[in-house]
């Protein structure tokens, strides 16, 4: 299912992936920028949220500084993938879990209160699955914004075109 977004909604998404103004009434500031009203901006964002177009509005935490975190991977025999994924997903500390096409086919992020708690969860996952866990904690981030411009045009097979459209989003 595809969503039809208003120009205001597209502007909000592209401008505010990188950050809302840190003031008591942030939507007032956005409204001024887009020649809109606070009520209109709020309504546009609520609608996006209800349509599932937003994961959330709020703080994006650095998992490493708010707690301890690592990316981890398992090489799971195909026949056991469902069983192993279920074991991994049952942990509250696991907040992303993706199946990927590779011998390491299960990739997940584990976040815990501190390094000790993190190590315990990884050990437990290894014990329950019977598989060694590949631990890949972040050592440096080269793109701290974690935002990229959404290209609202239809999919393009021409990379140069797609690239230009995405760049214009800034």
């Amino acid at each position: 299912m595809s969503l039809i977004l208003t120009e205001l909604q597209q502007n909000i998404i592209n401008a505010y992936q990188k950050g809302f103004p840190l003031v008591a009434r942030p939507y007032q500031v956005l409204a001024e920028q887009f020649n809109s009203s606070e009520a209109q901006v709020l309504a546009a964002i609520r609608q996006l949220d209800e349509a599932g177009a937003l994961s959330r509005v709020g703080a994006v935490f650095n998992h490493k500084k708010a707690g301890a975190s690592t990316l981890a991977a398992l090489a799971v025999p195909a026949a056991e993938l469902d069983r192993v994924a279920e074991i991994v997903n049952q942990f509250d500390e696991v907040n992303h879990n993706y199946e990927r096409e590779h011998s390491y086919n299960l990739w997940f992020v584990v976040t815990a209160y501190d390094e000790n708690a993190l190590a315990q969860v990884l050990t437990k996952i290894s014990e329950l699955t019977g598989l060694p866990v590949l631990k890949l904690p972040m050592e440096a981030a080269y793109h701290i914004d974690l935002a990229f411009s959404i290209n609202f045009a239809t999919p393009s097979f021409s990379t140069s075109t797609a690239h230009a459209q995405i760049s214009q989003g800034h």
């Binding site: 990188k18 509005v57 609202f152």
Partner: peptide, 18 residues
């Protein structure tokens, strides 16, 4: 202090066609 990266609207890329 870098604990919060930003306050933002986090898009659901999948829902937006990615």
């Amino acid at each position: 202090r870098g604990v919060i990266r930003r306050i933002a609207a986090v898009p659901n890329h999948y829902k937006l066609g990615y």
